[in-house]
Design a protein around this nucleic acid. Structure first.
Lengths: 229, 229
DNA sequence: TCAAAAGTGTTTTATATACACCCATGT
DNA sequence: ACATGGGTGTATATAAAACACTTTTGA
């Protein structure tokens, strides 16, 4: 490692925000760019990493500034450094992805005079920069990870029904699951706490509400337990 | 995203190089630093990302310059951006890891007046910067990934015995495996080609040499096949 | 002939899959 | 009473785990 000064690439963070809405639909937050390049096109939220903040702090700050999101599951995804990904300047971006529940966390629809909105995964427009590639990477990560880490619960409300959990897995994995087998498997892990409550305002038999027992999971994990659906 | 110019963090790449030697021992390449900071301490190879090269190109260039390694399996690991990881300057590093076979690829023992050598995983000295943390992350990744992607073959010679393959898995996963069950499982995937040859120069029954059928694997993978040990 | 590792099958156990009906609730 | 999703168990098939002896080769 040398101390000789080369010109430095610009360094940004970008964040794919996945949100699950009241209809159990999985969406991604996009922001319409109001300045060139890619003016008018949709992009994922992000911005420059400041000299005195960590990467994760930068991602959290951008999320807060651009979307009003603060308490959120956040994980580093991948770092993208192709030469032409930003036409203005050589820019390397550290991409993160975030998972939130859209019912419990009310998000600003629009911020800082920018148009921010939620797009279902099936209706994503062409994105600015290499953000298509970043989104594709994030979807692949979510799909892979939800099967062996309990990150799905980050998308659900604190209390959820087994059907909601199953539907989430079906959406993310993109294939149907057998109801009885799914319940058998998830309940046999003994990581769900029966809250004693049931869902409200449905015109049929109300389902039990469960909570994920995170502290029990962390304990089991230390002893070599592997969450797996 | 703004065009206003903030001061930029320095951007480097660092690379954990795992190598498997003739004794089937897993080792990591370290370089002794000849300048401050951390002068005299061991570190993983790395250096600055140039303005006109991609991250992967930078990692490959550093590997070539510092260790003479060129044809190598390389994968991005994680990006580390803690504020104090380099005492001179704010430096963000994109870490990669590489897998090579030390018998087939002869590596310079020492380069550029630097002292480079191979350390068994059990005898790693205290490393410069946050390189301990990077190494720990790389080991965890290797351990996790070898179970569901056929990356172990990158560490073995082109032709290898089933015992060598098993021993590699035992080393990386750090627990013993049953010989008959291991063979049954790996052979049932039908991804190993019997080369017709046997190992040479052993003072006992010579084992068959196999090759990994990568093109068949890539085909199967496209059709949804999952490699798993 | 001895030492050292290669090679080989079967039984048992655990896990995954397939599958259909009654229940509770609100309209 | 009807429509809607909630909730439940068993039988079968598949995969994982446990386990020990014979074979080959060079020294």
């Amino acid at each position: 490692m040398h101390t000789y000064e080369y010109p430095r690439p610009a360094l940004t963070v970008d964040c794919i925000v996945f949100g699950l809405d009241a209809q159990q639909e999985l969406k991604v937050m996009l922001i319409q760019r109001d300045i060139p390049p890619f003016q008018g096109q949709w992009a994922i939220p992000g911005g420059f990493v400041r000299i005195d903040e960590t990467l994760e702090a930068a991602a959290l700050r951008e999320l807060r500034e651009e979307t009003g999101i603060y308490d959120v599951y956040l994980e580093q995804l991948y770092t993208f450094g192709d030469l032409a990904r930003d036409p203005r300047d050589r820019t390397v971006t550290v991409a993160y992805y975030a998972l939130i529940n859209l019912v419990e966390q009310k998000i600003k629809a629009s911020t800082d005079a920018r148009d921010a909105s939620w797009f279902p995964l099936s209706k994503i427009p062409k994105l600015a920069f290499d953000h298509d590639k970043i989104l594709k990477t994030a979807i692949a990560r979510l799909r892979g990870k939800i099967r062996y880490e309990p990150i799905g619960f980050e998308l659900l409300a604190t209390k959820f029904t087994l059907s909601q959990l199953q539907k989430l897995y079906e959406t993310v994995l993109d294939h149907p699951l057998d109801k009885r087998n799914f319940r058998k498997k998830i309940l046999s892990m003994e990581l769900l706490i029966d809250s004693g409550e049931v869902e409200q305002g449905v015109s049929h038999r109300a389902a039990k509400l469960y909570q994920f027992d995170e502290s029990k999971y962390l304990q089991l994990k230390q002893n070599g337990f592997n969450f797996e659906i």
